[in-house]
Design a binder for these strands. Sequence first.
RNA 1: UCCGGAGUAGCUCAAUCGGCAGAGCGGGUGGCUGUUAACCACUAGGUUGGGGGUUCGAGUCCCUCCUCCGGAGCCA
Length: 429
Amino acid sequence: MQTYISGIAAQEGKSATLKGWLYNIRSGGKIRFLLVRDGTGIIQCVASQADVGEETFELIDTLTQESSIEVTGTVRADKRAPGGYELVMTKLELVGRAADYPITPKEHGTAFLMENRHLWVRSRRQAAILRVRHEIVRAIRDFFDDRGFVLFDTPIFTPAACEGTSTLFETDYFGEKAYLTQSGQLYAESGAMALGKVYCFGPTFRAEKSKTRRHLIEFWMVEPEVAYLDLDGDMELAEDFVFYVVEQVLANRREELDIIERDTSPLEKIKKPFPRISYTECVDILNKAGHPFQWGNDLGGDEETIVSSQFESPVMVHHFPAEIKAFYMKNDPQDERLALGFDMLAPEGKGEIIGGGQREDDYDMLVKKIQAHNLPLEAFDWYLDLRKYGTVPHAGFGLGLERTVGWICGLSHVRETIPFPRMLHRLKP
RNA sequence: UCCGGAGUAGCUCAAUCGGCAGAGCGGGUGGCUGUUAACCACUAGGUUGGGGGUUCGAGUCCCUCCUCCGGAGCCA
């Protein structure tokens, strides 16, 4: 029977068999200390020649880093062991010998580690980050599922741009041009008209030659869309949602945050309601902070950092100038220059994690906007149908998973937040 | 695409003014019964990113190309 290291404390004083890999080894004259990992944790296994016999003892000395092994022994609490428990070995079985594992227990550069990403994920820190990612994904699903949202999967292959601005990956679809999706939102809107409250959660693709710590070519986005919801309701949903995700990670992944050495106090300070400031107020804040900024420009990375650093909770900036926002966003009936959209900026200068808002629900207005953005009307005939057959006010938003993981884990770069990041000039492994 | 930085042993990095290419880790061999990225001794390991040029002599200076890193724009 196999025991997992995560549950080793319950086996104290008893016999256990661990199946894993050799993380590191240290030796004394007739004693060996094997650090064994099994994916759930790391434990020190102690072998003395007297306990395991000469043959096994010699086998231990031939083991290389990351060789796969099965070890049997007695679990014992010992202060000298990292983690507080160790396995006093009686038996060892070599499953697969590893040859010259490239990632040594020493410092490496990120370029080298990215080349070896398929092996880097075995390291303690990377594994912890990926566990937090999983927790965030679970919290996202639970949040929407518990509130009666229906998962509405949207297509990866699309016939045209969702937003004219970004560059798309073009593929050959049996002789026809098709593009990899950059958002499931337009399709999710159709879902909201059918099922009321929906969300889509999948990969999206942006062929922009972005080369910063916040960008990936392929990233995951969750996009809820709700019928009969306005901008205020949308922001409330986003606030409840992000708060829940942070709460769940703090409740369930303390150990991993500890391994990553994340200072959790900024996360613990987050409370509802999140600050809401209009774009126009935002311009004032920037100018008062000594950062000249003109009304009408879009917020860049520096601006986001200045604004978000004024608050402990994520801040929602709303009512942007309509000109700098996408065609599908509804204009403010009080002031046509403004769009009923919002961005949520994460604290600690981590930038935009959510973009969303109320959608244009008037048929004629939408036609005008599509034309104004120089987009082909015929590609959006089905989207316009949603306004033709029982249109309603509706809203939604998109949350970038990797940026959220990066913020919650306190990472400076999104490349460590996904098992195999696709970046400019990196398609392998 | 633009701006800046970097390519030297498997990895992380040194190499003075242009003058014999080195260290730590990792590998190998040996030693040590409580190690904590263990330690000690010995040992193997190089087309200095590619190409061209200057020079008696180039890792070092010049030209060019390639790769990677950081940032900008764009965005979640």
